[in-house]
Design a protein around this nucleic acid. Structure first.
Lengths: 213, 213
DNA sequence: TTTTTGTTGTGAAACTTTACACATGTCCAC
DNA sequence: GTGGACATGTGTAAAGTTTCACAACAAAAA
């Protein structure tokens, strides 16, 4: 399913809508209003309607949106039909956290492999995900047609990991190290830095505090 | 130090500038150009200059920006003079990851406490941070004047934790659970959802892949 | 039948963030 | 000194995102 140029923020919210909707779907409740979705995510109803407009979904004027239909439509848009396989590089606390969070979430995304250098972790299975030595990365990525890589190694090693991932044919990278990475344009890169978001919270908390004093 | 309404994105970048600058500061290199900073973070030089303009910092036309001065100025703006104390609620993999990431980063932020319900973790020290039972949260938060809380508990428990944090006088919350929280306006709330960002990467990776095919 | 109520869908405005374009200034080379 | 090379600082435009305001409409109530 194709929608021309869906905004980044809308894509994020669609993922959240779907998860929220899955939680409230039941025999008794088959429809939902924009203000109900909005309330669950603490955003405005207009925002919800605008997002749904962008994906071309129409609700019922009196009953709201058909929950099941909407879940399916979001799936058609954000999921890949054939599914996508994911690997975590770096099985430290953060890598493990990701795998645990992921577990049980039914999804078109499947966590296939983890990589590390620690001999105690290699060739063992963590929460259903096998861990390999980083040397095997190209081989495993290619064999299993893994298209998404999550980098949770110490930041000094992030660039070489990214390069290895790119050379192995990865399509998207989620980088949790503070080291900004360089990848070709055909690889989608998302960077997230925990320290930065903590410093941001600290800044606005301080500011809020002054403002409300 | 006060700057009127610094944009959110600028605050995030300032935190990143500072970290990048700390890495390159040395006897030999005392100044830096906007395009050098830009290159390190993979953004445009104009963006860097605009951010520095917003915080009122002027560089030297020929030598660029004085690294040390700039680091100090950023500190004056984003740090709180008296420092801020941080606690992690939920000492699972994610909570541990946060503490480890944090360790060693000199900063005006100090990680003071962790909370959990698992008896094996309570009253032990992880990476220099003591872990308490969640029942002790209000007491410890108040006694230690902790102003920032990071929530890394299972998502069902997030709302009650948030409420406890707010009642204990917290000023900012960083929520890593997918459960959107409700907090009063005087508490700054930042939400980050790992699954959503993974689904986002998956979506744009898929799209990129189609585009470059 | 008519009015009231409450919802969706959306053009247009407002706000936020980034990029362009270029005036200004400094140093170096000649 | 005069011109060239190269930075900074910034008005303004552009792009991205959210919100306002309201038309359109369906069902229930009067």
């Amino acid at each position: 399913m194709f929608i021309k140029n869906l905004p980044h923020k809308t894509v994020e919210r669609l993922s959240q809508y779907r998860r929220a909707l899955l939680l409230i779907l039941s025999k008794e409740k088959t429809h939902v209003f924009s203000h109900e979705i909005a309330q669950m995510l603490h955003i405005t109803p207009v925002q919800v309607r605008r997002d749904l407009m962008l994906i071309g979904y129409s609700g019922n004027l009196r009953k709201g949106y058909d929950i099941k239909e909407l879940i399916d439509l979001i799936g058609k848009i954000i999921d890949s039909e054939r599914g996508q396989r994911v690997a975590v590089v770096g099985l430290g606390n953060l890598g493990k956290a990701f795998i645990s969070y992921f577990k049980g979430k039914r999804s078109k995304l499947s966590m296939i492999a983890a990589f590390d250098v620690n001999p105690e972790k290699i060739n063992r299975v963590f929460d259903g995900v096998p861990c390999y030595h980083i040397n095997q990365l190209p081989e495993i990525i290619k064999q299993n047609n893994i298209s998404i890589g999550i980098i949770t190694v110490p930041s000094e090693q992030a660039p070489e990991i990214a390069e290895a991932l790119v050379l192995s044919g990865i399509k998207g990278i989620l980088n949790y190290t503070p080291k900004p990475l360089n990848v070709p344009a055909y690889v989608y890169l998302e960077e997230y830095d925990m320290i930065t978001s903590l410093e941001k919270v600290a800044f606005f908390a301080k500011k809020n505090d002054e403002r409300f004093k």
